[in-house]
Write a protein that binds this DNA or RNA. Sequence first.
DNA 1: GCTTTTTGCAATATATAAATTGCAAAAATA
DNA 2: TATTTTTGCAATTTATATATTGCAAAAAGC
Lengths: 71, 71
Amino acid sequence: MKMVTMMKNIKLKVARAEHDLSQEELAKRVGVSRQTIGLIELGKYNPTLSLCKSICKALSRTLDELFWDED
Amino acid sequence: MKMVTMMKNIKLKVARAEHDLSQEELAKRVGVSRQTIGLIELGKYNPTLSLCKSICKALSRTLDELFWDED
DNA sequence: GCTTTTTGCAATATATAAATTGCAAAAATA
DNA sequence: TATTTTTGCAATTTATATATTGCAAAAAGC
């Protein structure tokens, strides 16, 4: 059982706001459920790399810009 | 059923070589099995974000450096 | 204030990441 | 070339990412 204490992903929330997308709209573009996007923003879990990349492309950002926390 | 055609991760293989680590040694540092590392290098699956980050830290690289392919 | 949209939450179901073991081939080193 | 180390592969099991539905609370718009 792995206790994963993750941080909220504010950068994702901001980037989504900049594109004026709801969680549901982003989810549709990326091909996942709304809940998945919501939980990632809340830091309540651990997406796969391919999903991270899809989100990055939908929001024209890179992995470092949305998912890398400086040390 | 999702057909995932992924590319081999050469950048990871190179970074690991630069640190003179075997797949097994890297796996141990990162806390996963050797197979997991091997399959990621072979592009045969889709690691989680937290694993990608662990690998990055073990090899002192960022997500973009190891896992982002320039469009 | 009322209505609509957006977000959080919870429970259950399904798909797939990752573990484990064992073996064979390849690569490295003596 | 013989020995050791490293890597690939396959089958089975376990943990967890993601889907789905439904509901309630908050936020945004009227």
